Computed example of a mutant assay.
Amino acid sequence: MTEAWHPTAPGVLRLPSGRLVRGRALRRPVPPGPLPTYAVHLYGKEPPAVPWEAHWLRWPDFRLPHDPAHARILLHEAWTLAATERVEIACGGGRGRTGTALACLAVIDGVPPDRAVAFVRRHYDARAVETPWQRRYVRHFTL
């Protein structure tokens, strides 16, 4: 088991199960402290390589993932690994796509889909999940 994120570290979201996941903006430097052990990078083009295991999910800014089935697989894997690893979800700005993915993780963790966006906005970033179609994506996210 890897040392977990510090629960009060910037960008760390505690899911109802107790799993900790960090959201962040790829445009900003990596925050101080431990590095992720697993990441899902949500970007329209392939993001720069990082020295930890990272998976690219093609997801253009202000949009939805190109492949929703692949998104479900990667997000389930991230949720599973968050029980024992430092998992990071990141996009360019750390709000829209990242917030949407974090809300989907909350759904996997048991938060009702119609409450997941509010959960992420309350516990991660008040402006997370930026577009109406991102909110709709979360409401219809299936396990």
Rank of each mutant, 00 (worst) to 15 (best):
R58Q: 15
M1A: 14
C104S: 10
F141E: 11
L35Q: 13
T142I: 14
I108L: 15
G96M: 02
A101I: 12
E130A: 04
G94L: 06
A71K: 07
P31Y: 00
W133T: 15
T80C: 06
V21D: 05
G33W: 14
W59A: 04
T100H: 09
H6M: 08
E130V: 01
V138I: 05
R115Q: 15
G99Y: 00
A118L: 10
R72T: 15
A9E: 14
L26C: 03
T8F: 01
G33M: 11
V120H: 01
L26N: 08
A118Y: 00
I73H: 14
A101S: 11
R135Y: 00
T2F: 00
H55E: 15
Y38G: 00
A128V: 09
K45Y: 13
R97P: 13
W52I: 14
A106H: 04
V129A: 02
D67T: 05
W5K: 06
T8G: 02
P132L: 11
A82E: 12
T80Y: 06
P51A: 07
T80H: 12
P132A: 04
R22K: 09
L15Y: 04
P48C: 00
A103L: 05
L75M: 11
P47F: 03
E46M: 11
A39H: 12
V21K: 07
V111Q: 08
L74M: 07
A83W: 00
P113Y: 00
C91K: 08
A90G: 13
P29H: 10
W52H: 13
P112C: 08
C104V: 12
C91E: 08
A90I: 04
I108A: 04
T2M: 10
W52L: 12
L20F: 04
R72S: 09
A103W: 01
H41I: 00
V21Q: 04
W59H: 15
V111F: 05
P16V: 00
W56R: 08
W56L: 09
G99E: 05
A82V: 05
R63W: 13
C104K: 02
